[in-house]
């Protein structure tokens, strides 16, 4: 896509020209689209399998801890919120503040990991694992795949936090930061579809 097509002037702010542009690298957005496609296939597959085995899925969902799913949703949304605040701080050139906000985002996200591990352990204690039935095969596959994305997102956040703390980003060189933040928001967005699909409906 031509760079010109990505930029559109939207107005002025204190004499500075404001431009409409895609935050982050174009390559990251193609990667995000690929990830969204993979998860869409998994989600649709889960819904189809549920329609084919309704009783098994009702029984399986009853064994899940809905409140832990709720806690995880709230933690990922809160973590995303702190990443959005961190990006704002970076846009203002406040590297140290931005890095601290990213640390808060990661601490909140670590609650998600702890809850997820606790959830897996409590299922294992009930002798439930990935081979139990189709519901739990899909449950472990989808949630573990998502967990891997959370872990990768946290590695990316650590990387950009270190660079932000050294003030290596500025107004003309912030694309890497925006790409990392966008990836994290994608992980959050996937969970807000996953949560009702597996825990609520």
């Amino acid at each position: 896509m031509h760079r010109e097509a990505e930029l559109t002037l939207v107005g002025k702010n204190n004499g500075q020209i404001l431009e409409k542009r895609l935050p982050g690298d174009l390559a990251m957005w193609f990667f995000i689209l690929a990830e969204l496609t993979v998860f869409a296939i998994l989600f649709i597959g889960f819904a189809v399998a549920e329609q084919l085995n309704p009783e098994m899925f009702i029984e399986g969902k009853a064994k899940l801890h809905q409140i832990s799913g709720l806690i995880n949703t709230l933690t990922l949304i809160t973590s995303s919120f702190f990443v959005a605040l961190a990006l704002n701080a970076m846009h203002k050139g406040e590297g140290q503040k931005s890095a601290k906000l990213l640390v808060v985002a990661k601490l909140v996200a670590s609650v998600y990991i702890a809850v997820k591990v606790w959830e897996y352990m409590s299922l294992f204690e009930q002798n439930i694992d990935i081979e139990t039935n189709t519901f739990f095969t899909l449950y472990f596959m989808i949630t573990f795949f998502h967990l891997m994305h959370v872990l990768l997102g946290m590695v990316i956040l650590i990387f950009i936090a270190v660079k932000a703390s050294k003030n290596e980003y500025n107004a003309s060189n912030i694309s890497g930061y925006e790409s990392g933040a966008s990836y994290w928001h994608m992980v959050d967005m996937l969970w807000i579809i996953l949560f009702p699909l597996i825990y609520v409906i």
Binding site: I17, E19, K20, R21, L85, N88
Partner: peptide, 10 residues
């Protein structure tokens, strides 16, 4: 310059 959301909006 890229327009950014305010912290209030976030």
């Amino acid at each position: 310059m890229h327009p950014i959301n305010s912290n209030k909006k976030n």
